[in-house]
Design a protein around this nucleic acid. Sequence first.
DNA 1: GATGTTATACAAACTAGTCGGTATAAATTA
DNA 2: TAATTTATACCGACTAGTTTGTATAACATC
Lengths: 211, 211
Amino acid sequence: MPKDGSKTRTLLLDAALELALENGLAATSIDEILEKAKLTKGTFFYHFKSKDELAVELVRRFVEHDHALFKEAVARVESLSRDPLQQVLLLCGLAAEMFKEAPENPGCLMASYCYEGQLFNEESRKACEAQLRLWADWIEGKLKSAAKTRKPAPADLRQVAEMFQVIFEGAFILARTYKEPDIIAKQALAYRDMLEALFSAGQRTPLDRQK
Amino acid sequence: MPKDGSKTRTLLLDAALELALENGLAATSIDEILEKAKLTKGTFFYHFKSKDELAVELVRRFVEHDHALFKEAVARVESLSRDPLQQVLLLCGLAAEMFKEAPENPGCLMASYCYEGQLFNEESRKACEAQLRLWADWIEGKLKSAAKTRKPAPADLRQVAEMFQVIFEGAFILARTYKEPDIIAKQALAYRDMLEALFSAGQRTPLDRQK
DNA sequence: GATGTTATACAAACTAGTCGGTATAAATTA
DNA sequence: TAATTTATACCGACTAGTTTGTATAACATC
């Protein structure tokens, strides 16, 4: 085995992520992270200059992961349909599917950092913002395309697009408060249904989707 | 002037709330709370047995406040219209108005606690859950009433009702990430528009609301 | 043996919570 | 009504324990 600390580094980040999503990073001590990762102090500070550096790296990795997810999801729905509205609807369905067999207590590190202002330095915030806008921009573009052929009911399509992520961030919180993880998938589907209604309010075709 | 410690107690809670919403309660030391409230250690522990007791009281007060808001809002919209759908739409407008002149960085203590698992003991969680369900139950009832006369497009009305709070929790997070506080009001209005579309998907009357 | 990686022991700072004490309003009593 | 007691509200120094971060040694791999 080549001498490679990147495995240990990933181990530390994974442990920290899990604890941060559960209890917040501020409430998570380095010792707890090390206990979970079965490592010791020296290892931690070999890989990270400080806890703050870990925090930055944690969100960087999270955003990167989200970016990969975005690219993959977009590629899939764009290959499944040529109709822009259908692509967005498919995306909702895809997301719902994903959260059906999700981790036991899903959450978003960006949301966690939002309520831990200390960690959310300007650089991290901007990275999160850019990543969020990526989704919203794509959805907005698709909806505006769709609006050219089908006349949707009056609504601010930018806000409707941003609502996609609003739904997930909000659903994570309700899922935790209700202790009902499946609320996330259900909300994604409800958003899809409302989107569809928005675009068929003018001229509804009689072919309703099956439940 | 009668000697009344409740003013000091409230001062402590107010300072703690503000700091908790900004940085999380775990990351907020008692000393910081005291600095903000211009009080001292002894006073804090005269009013609260521990920091945990403060945490419990903080969320209790938050839920209580939300409950009052709920009762007032429901009374207002029920007096403004007799139509159940209109009442819900009015509620969205009311909420949007409220967040137009909101505090600089609005947030929800329940959301904060969700990502600070340590604080969210079972009693507090249940209180939050009950309060959230109050809103969702009311909206669901109204939507189901409305569904009897107007046939809405197919959607799970329970989820659509729960989406009301999902939107706010999510919008708080986006508002912070984007540094755009007005996203909250805008999301409330977008939700309203989508709700309206949902219920006019079948038989849209030509009287569209003005933008 | 040079470099990358992990372990152990320690130091400095911070944090929750304690404790002895003070000030003042209200109740009691002379 | 003046003097005395009592309870409430608040203060600030102190402690015990935790936390981040450092120094240094041991070990493995090339």
